[in-house]
Simulated scan of single mutants.
Amino acid sequence: AVKDAIEIGYRHIDTASDYGNEAEVGQAIAESIKAGIIKREDLFVTTKVWPQKADAQAKALQSIHESLTKMNLTYLDLVLVHFPWDDYVGSYKGCEDAFHQKLVRSIGISNFNEQQTDNLVSKATVKPANDQIMSNPKAESAGYLKYSHSHNITVTAYSPLGTGSLVKNPKLMAIGQKHNKSAAQVMIRWQIQRGVIVIPKSVKKQYIKEDFEQYIGHKIMGFIDKVCESNSETDFETERQKLTPMIKLNTGYEMPEIGLGTWQAKGDPVKQAVKDALEVGYRHIDTAYIYENEKEVGEGIHAQIAAGVLKREELFITTKVWPNGSNQKKALEMIHHSLKQLNVTYLDLVLI
């Protein structure tokens, strides 16, 4: 799995002393380096030390040395205290020792809440760089994320797919299907756009590749929190309609950044195209007086309004007036004609 991930393009590998797999992880890294796929400096390796009740500081430093030996590395990029258990402060001080000895480039914590983090920071000489916590749309940890960012502590999400339980979530699947992506890819991108490092786990190359090729949009992901919290299909549809990125015009109105163009499309095909576009989530339809298809565009719009897919006020309609041989009066007449053909009481945008 590690070799496949590195070949695909992953450059961050997460393990732990407690996982019992550091030797195999190190072997895969060494083989990938030998094959010329990467250099050691291209890779970010994270491991974790298990907190101890007694001699925690010395045992943490010893654990780091053992991890280095098992993975055949001269340094680690990040070492975390695995849980806020037993003498976790002593374990962290052992990580500080490794940091000062340049065995570790950064140190941090895992599964800590705000109070535990505050307690640790008050006794530490090196501030934690990262906290690795469970985080996914059903356990989003928004409060801790806000806290950590305000304290300049990065967050890594483990179980970002809900240990696989959310990959079949119908609401997440619907968002993904709209963009030809899987629910897993949507969830990973959501975390990245929240400023969260994400470490999905898989041993199958197919899923490793899918997770890496996550959705690359930039605005639509902010609604996953509401979508996953809601049990109402009505609420889901309301949130889904908000997914289209908007740009504000100088009139104060917002215009969807993506719309359906209808030039050279006429008759039943354009009517069906408008219906299909509205069903998948488009909220901007562009037509023109000269296209001679406003009637069919209007029929497509009203078919979906009647079906409950959207309301008129959720749709942005653009049309155009033809300047050749026209004047002020004729332009106004064309707009009235377009309103009648489209069967609407107002237009969102009219262009010359």
Rank of each mutant, 00 (worst) to 15 (best):
K3H: 11
I6T: 02
I6E: 02
I8Q: 12
I8F: 07
R11I: 04
H12V: 03
I13N: 03
G20F: 09
N21I: 14
E22Q: 07
A23C: 08
E24K: 12
V25L: 05
Q27T: 15
Q27V: 11
A28T: 04
A30W: 00
S32T: 13
I33C: 06
I33L: 10
A35K: 10
K39R: 09
V49K: 05
W50G: 11
W50R: 11
Q52K: 10
K53M: 08
A56P: 09
A60R: 06
A60Y: 08
Q62P: 03
Q62L: 12
I64C: 07
E66P: 00
L68P: 15
M71S: 13
M71W: 06
D77K: 02
D77G: 04
L80S: 00
P84Q: 00
D86C: 11
S91Y: 01
S91Q: 00
A98C: 15
L103W: 12
S106N: 15
G108Q: 13
N111F: 08
N111I: 04
F112C: 11
N119V: 12
L120W: 03
V121A: 15
S122W: 04
K123M: 09
N130D: 10
N130H: 13
D131K: 07
E140K: 06
A142D: 09
Y144P: 09
S148K: 02
P160W: 03
L166N: 00
K168C: 02
K171E: 01
L172W: 06
M173I: 11
Q177A: 14
S182L: 02
A184H: 11
Q185V: 11
Q185I: 11
W190P: 09
W190V: 02
K201P: 00
K201H: 02
S202T: 08
K204L: 10
Q214L: 02
G217N: 08
K219V: 06
M221T: 08
G222I: 13
F223Q: 08
F223A: 14
V227T: 11
E229L: 12
N231E: 13
E233W: 08
E233K: 10
T234W: 05
F236T: 05
R240L: 14
L243H: 04
P245V: 08
I247W: 06
L249E: 05
N250H: 09
N250T: 06
T251H: 12
T251D: 13
Y253H: 11
M255C: 14
A265N: 15
A265P: 12
V274S: 03
K275H: 06
D276I: 11
D276Y: 10
E279V: 09
G281H: 10
R283V: 15
I285N: 05
T287K: 13
N293C: 04
K295E: 10
E296M: 06
V297T: 10
H302W: 11
H302S: 13
A303L: 04
Q304F: 03
I305F: 09
A306Q: 09
V309F: 07
L310I: 09
K311Q: 15
R312T: 12
E313M: 09
I317E: 05
G325M: 07
N327Q: 04
L332V: 06
S338P: 13
S338D: 08
K340Q: 14
N343I: 03
